[in-house]
Amino acid sequence: SIVTKIISIVQERQNMDDGAPVKTRDIADAAGLSIYQVRLYLEQLHDVGVLEKVNAGKGVPGLWRLL
């Protein structure tokens, strides 16, 4: 499923980069989806406690990390 793919992308990127959070844009590119589509999935995963959003604010790139 797309959700499983997104989780594995975040996991893979974090492992490659010493646990650093992953940008929404990088996840979207790797999943082959638009940034808006991916954001909806990321928000859902956040709501159920799978991911945390590391930063927030208007015009700030979203950074995500697995919990």
Rank of each mutant, 00 (worst) to 15 (best):
V50H: 03
L66Y: 12
G62D: 15
I35V: 11
Y36M: 10
N55A: 10
K23V: 03
Q11T: 10
A28R: 02
T4D: 12
R39K: 11
D18H: 14
W64T: 00
P21W: 15
V50S: 02
I9H: 03
S34W: 04
G32A: 07
Y36G: 10
Q11F: 11
L51H: 00
D29H: 11
L33Y: 04
G19S: 05
Q14W: 04
V50C: 08
N55R: 08
Y41P: 00
G59D: 09
V10T: 02
Y36F: 11
H46W: 12
I35S: 05
T4W: 14
A30S: 07
V38A: 14
G62V: 15
G59H: 06
K5L: 13
L66A: 04
K5I: 08
K58M: 09
Y41M: 08
S8F: 13
P61M: 13
D29N: 11
K23A: 13
I35Q: 05
K58I: 10
L33G: 01
D47S: 14
L33F: 04
V60G: 15
L40F: 14
E52I: 07
L63Q: 09
A20K: 13
A20N: 11
A20G: 10
L42H: 00
V48Y: 11
Q44K: 14
V50R: 05
V22R: 01
Y36Q: 11
G19N: 08
V38G: 02
G19H: 06
Q44R: 14
G49V: 03
K23M: 09
R39N: 11
A28M: 03
L67V: 14
L51T: 01
A30E: 08
V22G: 01
Q11W: 15
I27S: 01
S1R: 12
D17F: 15
K58T: 11
L40Y: 14
G57R: 07
Y36W: 13
G19A: 05
L42F: 01
I9N: 00
A28D: 04
D17P: 06
Q11M: 12
I2F: 07
M16R: 13
L45Q: 00
V50K: 05
T4Y: 14
V48C: 15
S8V: 06
S8G: 10
I9E: 01
D18V: 07
K23C: 09
L51K: 02
G32M: 07
A56F: 08
K5E: 05
L51S: 01
M16S: 09
V50F: 05
R25P: 04
A20V: 07
I27D: 02
S8D: 07
N15K: 12
G32F: 03
W64Q: 00
V38D: 00
I9Y: 13
Y41F: 09
I7F: 05
P21E: 02
Y41L: 11
V48L: 14
V10G: 00
E43A: 06
K5S: 05
L40D: 05
K53R: 10
V54C: 07
L67D: 04
R39V: 13
I7D: 00
I2D: 04
A56L: 10
D47E: 14
T24Q: 03
A56M: 10
L42A: 01
L66F: 09
T4V: 11
V22P: 02
L63C: 08
G49R: 04
I2P: 03
Q44A: 14
D29Q: 13
Q37Y: 08
V54M: 05
P21R: 03
T24W: 02
D47K: 15
V38H: 00
L51Y: 01
Y41R: 02
A28Y: 02
N15F: 11
I27F: 02
T4I: 13
G62W: 12
L51Q: 01
G49K: 04
M16K: 13
Y41K: 02
P61N: 15
I6W: 03
K58P: 13
L45N: 00
L40T: 08
S8C: 15
R65S: 07
L63N: 05
G62A: 15
E52A: 06
D26E: 08
G57P: 07
P61Y: 14
A31Q: 02
L33A: 02
G62N: 15
A31G: 02
D29G: 07
R13H: 07
L51E: 03
H46V: 15
V48S: 11
L45P: 00
L33C: 04
R13W: 06
Q14G: 05
Y36H: 11
S34K: 06
E43C: 09
A31N: 01
Y41C: 05
E52F: 04
D26A: 10
D29E: 13
D26F: 08
R39Y: 10
L33Q: 02
P61D: 15
W64M: 00
V60H: 13
I9C: 05
M16T: 08
D18L: 10
D26P: 02
I7T: 03
M16F: 08
L33E: 02
R13G: 03
T4G: 10
L63E: 13
D29W: 08
V22E: 01
I35F: 08
Q11V: 09
G59W: 05
G57A: 07
A20P: 04
A31L: 13
V38L: 05
R13K: 12
A56R: 07
G32P: 01
A20F: 06
A28L: 02
I2E: 03
T24G: 03
I27K: 00
Q11E: 08
E43M: 09
Q44V: 11
G59F: 06
Q14K: 03
R65T: 06
Q14H: 09
Q37P: 01
A31Y: 02
E12A: 11
V22L: 05
N15L: 13
E12I: 10
V48R: 13
H46N: 07
E12W: 14
G62R: 08
V10R: 05
S1Q: 11
T24F: 02
P61G: 15
V10E: 00
R13N: 03
G19D: 06
D26Y: 11
L33M: 13
R65P: 00
P21K: 04
M16E: 08
L66N: 01
P21Q: 04
G19I: 03
R25L: 07
L66M: 09
K5F: 09
T24L: 03
N15S: 11
L45C: 02
K58A: 12
V3C: 14
V22A: 04
K23P: 13
T24Y: 01
P61V: 10
V48F: 13
Q37W: 11
G57W: 05
N15E: 11
L63F: 08
S1F: 11
G32I: 02
I6H: 00
L40E: 08
A56I: 10
V3R: 11
V38C: 15
M16I: 09
L66W: 08
P61H: 14
S34Y: 04
K23F: 05
Y41W: 09
G49E: 02
V48G: 08
A56N: 12
G57E: 08
Q11P: 00
G59R: 06
R65H: 04
K53P: 05
L51G: 01
E43Q: 11
I27E: 01
Y41H: 05
I35E: 08
K5V: 07
S1V: 09
S34L: 04
A28I: 02
V60Y: 12
N15I: 11
N55H: 10
K5Q: 09
R65W: 12
R39Q: 11
Q11H: 10
S8A: 13
